[in-house]
């Protein structure tokens, strides 16, 4: 069986530089990040120096270069959420997961991010888990949420 990387590369036969971005996007969508192996294979596939491929890829914020967490927890720090206690929520998440915003837990399950206004101020405070909004969130819900996520992974 082909691995997903090879399968994607096969969809781009005889391609040159102009297909670099679509190719990277496809790989990113499938693997969740751009591994070193994928950068190297793409550069071989397109006969481009790997420094160029990596240079282009790092130019775009959309690409990650490390495996992404199963659950990305984003906490809104906009004015409204802040006033309704998002800072305490963040603190509690930090304590529970033992990471800071922008970090991923060592087991790769959680990633914590602080984001500016998510645009639903009336429902603050807001915590987003993998894109799904939890409105009117409170510190008390954290333990359950984390537990539920962990079970989901196992």
């Amino acid at each position: 069986m082909d691995n997903p990387l090879d399968r994607i590369l096969k969809q781009y036969p005889n391609t040159r530089r102009d297909n670099l971005l679509p190719l990277l996007q496809d790989i990113h969508d499938s693997l969740g990040y751009l591994s070193e192996e994928s950068i190297i294979k793409v550069s071989q596939h397109l006969s481009l120096p790997s420094s160029k491929v990596y240079g282009v890829a790092t130019f775009f914020d959309q690409f990650h270069f490390e495996p992404q967490a199963h659950f990305v927890i984003r906490i809104c720090s906009g004015t409204s959420c802040h006033l309704s206690g998002s800072a305490e929520i963040m603190d509690e998440f930090k304590k529970t997961l033992n990471i800071r915003p922008g970090q991923t837990t060592r087991d790769g399950v959680f990633r914590l991010e602080e984001v500016p206004c998510l645009g639903a101020c009336g429902l603050s405070p807001i915590v987003e888990v993998n894109g799904e909004s939890h409105t009117g969130f409170s510190v008390q819900q954290i333990a359950d949420l984390v537990e539920a996520c962990k079970e989901n992974v196992a």
Binding site: I39, P49, S51, V53, Y54, G55, F60
Partner: peptide, 20 residues
């Protein structure tokens, strides 16, 4: 014709270096 180094990243954190 070797292209060892290139720009990495963007904005004020940009550096020039080899792949990865």
């Amino acid at each position: 014709g070797v292209s060892t180094v290139d720009f990495i990243g963007r904005g004020h954190s940009t550096i020039i270096g080899p792949t990865f």
